[in-house]
Nucleic acid binder design. Structure first.
Lengths: 283, 283
DNA sequence: AAAATAGTGTAACACATTGACCATTGGAGT
DNA sequence: ACTCCAATGGTCAATGTGTTACACTATTTT
């Protein structure tokens, strides 16, 4: 059983310090294979005793025992060459290539100018409506999730309730519409109706030939790769996330305040398991 | 320069004892990687001092220096590509770079073995339940969208109706749970309850330290980059899409038939604007 | 508010490793 | 025979290792 699985099996019972040890070990397993108790303790910023306790909690006699176990695993890996080939190229190699291509293209398309032109109307609009076909819902959901955390009056429209929900749309509002080849009739018609109403349309779609492209200049055009029989949502999700980030940077304090208030709610309702400082946070 | 080459370069000047040491080391390099002076001395049948002299003759400061050199070589050999990816990201890497790194890591993690272990239970389960925190909903939605097109009884559980919906779960069912750092209490508790009920848990999460990891062996562990103030859903979406593709390839005709029937419905209800052959189709 | 408990660090320990130093061996040359 | 010298083995203090017992703190329970 690998050290990762071993940690996984007890991760609920780890103390804060032991968690830090686990993180360090998972981040760089070499620390265990070659390292010493003292080295690991210094690296984690704890005492040697805690390292030993960590080893015993994992079910070993002590650190030496744990290290021996890890080394045995490493020896096996080294002697069997199968391990090295397995990870080179997965079965998804062509898919991987396609998706990475599409991602590159998406990042090129979503440059500052494009993102700004899409974010500007969202910043000032009283209401933001998000429309999407059922199959490209992942991108719409990412946008909804992000936007609704940083500004009010964001609504994700489900296909079955298009009319009922959209009847509240007013001139000056913004509608962000996701739609890709084999364009959903429902989404396109709703977008056209909103456009006629004076709602600004922001289109996230797949090319100048899209029916959405004729509705608005504010749009981005993505390359959509296939994963198995279906289209990938990854480009749409990236577009949504970058758009959210752009809106955040334009709203500045307003967005930050809202996030702070949201955080208060989360803490009060005990939404999350841990409230410690996030591992990767920078804004 | 490898230890073999190093020995070769001085083999003319080795004393008989040193030759025996060299033979032992070449025969089993692990002796050097993990062994001690005493161990090696006993194995060769000589004194510890001779081992040290051997090390200095090879050009090192002492035995420790030699061992360090060997270990560095070994480390490079067995550092997996995914690990290398994870470690090359600097402190302030641009978003694009971070996301592409995370994608690479995701493709490495989601190899055949991993995808199969996750797809197998989904293929045979009577019911599939998809759980997710609100913030990682995009991945869950991608999975729901894909799976529900290729098999029946797939349900996406919203946080507010967890209890009402999940009470229909039975042993033998499968629950696919998305959850990432700052784990949603709701999702974790629901997963644990289902697990106790005898439902197979498939976890898409962010490491062995996730509370989900202690529930099941069937899981994948993704690196989640940050986009602005929020976490990216891209890795979760990719995992979902690859998983769908894997399930499709295992279901084969059953999935194809279902897609065909769905197509008939779409045509009958005029869901799409154009019915021409899809641009990117291959399965 | 007091007591019990869990978590953590400090200090002491027993032991292993290491390389410098010295002793012994064994053979080659004078 | 004797010296010389490289090769080898042994000893030992210094350092570093893993481990354990104990004390302190924070948290929870009573």
């Amino acid at each position: 059983m690998s050290i990762q699985n071993l940690i996984a099996s007890v991760n609920e019972r780890l103390t804060p310090t032991e968690l830090r040890i686990a993180e360090a070990v998972l981040d760089d397993p070499m620390l265990l294979t070659f390292g010493t108790v003292s080295g690991l303790a210094d690296r984690v910023g704890t005492s040697r005793a805690s390292i030993v306790r960590f080893a015993t909690k994992l079910g070993f006699e002590g650190y030496s025992d744990l290290q021996k176990s890890v080394r045995d695993g490493v020896s096996q890996q080294l002697t069997s060459p199968s391990h090295r080939v397995r990870h080179q190229d997965g079965p998804a190699a062509p898919i991987q290539f396609e998706i990475e291509n599409a991602m590159h293209a998406a990042f090129v398309e979503l440059d500052d100018t494009c993102l700004q032109s899409m974010a500007d109307p969202i910043v000032v609009a009283p209401n933001v409506w998000i429309l999407s076909g059922e199959t490209s819902m992942a991108g719409a959901h990412a946008l909804y999730s992000g936007l609704s955390m940083i500004r009010p009056n964001v609504r994700l429209i489900q296909e079955h309730s298009t009319g009922r929900e959209l009847c509240g749309a007013l001139p000056g509002d913004v509608a962000v519409v996701f739609d890709f080849a084999r364009y959903r009739k429902n989404a396109v018609i709703a977008a056209r109706t909103l456009s006629d109403l004076g709602v600004t349309i922001v289109a996230i779609t797949d090319g100048p030939l899209s029916p959405l492209s004729s509705l608005t200049q504010i749009r981005c055009e993505l390359k959509i790769p296939a994963v198995g029989p279906f289209d990938s949502s990854v480009p749409a999700v990236i577009a949504a996330e970058l758009l959210v980030a752009q809106v955040v940077s334009e709203l500045r304090d307003e967005a930050r305040n809202r996030i702070d208030r949201l955080e208060v709610f989360w803490q009060a309702t005990g939404t999350f398991l841990n409230y410690g400082p996030r591992p990767n946070r920078d804004a």
